[in-house]
Amino acid sequence: MFNKKILTKKDLILVGILLAAAIICILLANAPSRGGGLTAVITQDGRLLYSVELSSVKEPYTIKIDGDYPLEIRLESKAVQVQNASCKDKLCMASGRLDRAGQQAVCLPNRTVVRIVSSSDKSEEWDAVTG
């Protein structure tokens, strides 16, 4: 009885495993909320043309959207932006860089919508924008 330690080596290993499990759980619970998990969704006439996870974009690139008023859309690792529009208004270009869930750029003449959605629905700060 005298030589029995309060904590044995096996106890320490168990405590270590528990701590590691707890830390991993906390990291998992908090990880996908901000920054990551943004997807650029591009539709034309309601049909899905592209759905691009922004974090998967290593080098920025441009995609062309055909139609009566073709568009050029630039994808980056953290944002998406209509770079060129062939209509007169260019309202979609005025929407600027989209880098947060819930933002969108709309091209009426080419019936195209570029929007950012988040994989975790909690990170959208509003349901809709009026303006």
């Binding site: 005025a94 600027g96 750029a105 700060e125 509003w126 809709a128 924008v129």
Partner: peptide, 14 residues
Amino acid sequence: WDIAIRDPRGTGAG
């Protein structure tokens, strides 16, 4: 429902 009002002198969608 949370409805955001656009800034009339804002520069972009956000």
